[in-house]
Design a protein around this nucleic acid. Structure first.
Lengths: 180, 180
DNA sequence: CCCCTATCTGCAAAAGATTGCATAACCCCA
DNA sequence: TGGGGTTATGCAATCTTTTGCAGATAGGGG
């Protein structure tokens, strides 16, 4: 049920359309919970049926009309209740690490380049994170309560990302010693 | 297809039964790729049908008989080929961080205790990791090639875990400043 | 005018994962 | 003899996620 609650979380401050939510998931909440637009639209329909969200169509000029969703009182309650439940431990799933179990002279160069690609990707992500942090979360102590939570999520992403860069460096160094 | 390849990876050095594989997934490979025994048994059947694994029944005394699977030549080839493919970037999914987006005076204490629970869990895991590292991977430079890869996976787990502990501390500190 | 891109919404099939249940052999201990 | 634990394998239903496709509106550029 976490996707449903992630969507509702995204709707706490603003009402959004499915399209806007999908953008948001790419740029913010999605750092911590991926979802494709197909999943989002389907979940929105279910949530509206359950009366946790309300929907209204908004006419736009210059673009197709959109359907904007907002949290209902029932939705707010369900979300607040969900936060109190116990959280499943994160499911560890990383193909790259499994591939490393298969390390050999033959594939060492390939794995090095995969790691290097991931490293670059992470650099770009960290750049984005840092930009957001500097702009909106520079002084966590003074943030309003809810924003402190968002800050902590961001801080988690940043710390994990930086740790990942360091690991990539160690990995590439060790892989460089392997002969084909 | 990653589960299939994770299973085959576990079978590189030893032939194993479904039950033993499930244990392994709890204690080693599973650090980086979770799977339940139901998933494992089903996947084993599929892999045997594809001829990537062979199976043989082994009689045991004192326990029920077991079905032991081993990599075929075709399986080895498929696995080696898979390593060369491009790796999907890890899907980020962490309920806890989404919950933090919902931080409020009401739930701060609850989230603190969730984080504290996770911290403890991670401490236990790190203890296990360290034990393995000290026993089998103490001097990575001198390991045979494949084991170097396994070491890097382990090192990734350790670094991530340690980073997580530090984050938990920062989070709990900031959460402590929030009033109900 | 036509194509490209962006906005916007969705269906449907397949693959993957979780949950709950079921069964059975065998041991130990009371 | 019966209950509890470990080893051992699996089915079935459901839920979640991915993948591929589809179609409509509208602006801008050539």
């Amino acid at each position: 049920m976490a996707l449903a609650h992630a969507i509702m979380t995204a709707l706490i401050e603003d009402d959004l359309s499915g399209y806007e939510l999908a953008k948001d998931f790419e740029a913010s909440l999605g750092f911590f919970w991926n979802a494709s637009h197909q999943q989002i639209y389907q979940e929105l329909r279910k949530l509206a049926e359950k009366k946790w969200l309300n929907k209204r169509e908004v006419s736009q000029s210059g673009k197709p009309n959109k359907i904007v969703y907002g949290l209902t009182r029932a939705g707010q309650d369900a979300l607040a209740e969900w936060v109190y439940g116990t959280t499943k431990t994160q499911a560890a799933k990383d193909e790259l690490l499994i591939k490393l179990y298969n390390l050999s002279g033959d594939n060492a160069a390939h794995l090095t380049s995969e790691i290097s690609g991931r490293r670059e990707q992470m650099m770009r992500l960290l750049y984005l994170y840092e930009k957001i942090r500097l702009r909106h979360y520079d002084d966590p102590q003074t943030l309003p309560t809810r924003r402190k939570g968002v800050y902590l999520a961001l801080a988690s992403g940043i710390a994990q990302g930086e740790q990942f860069l360091a690991w990539c460096d160690e990995a590439m160094e060790l892989l460089a010693t392997i002969e084909a």
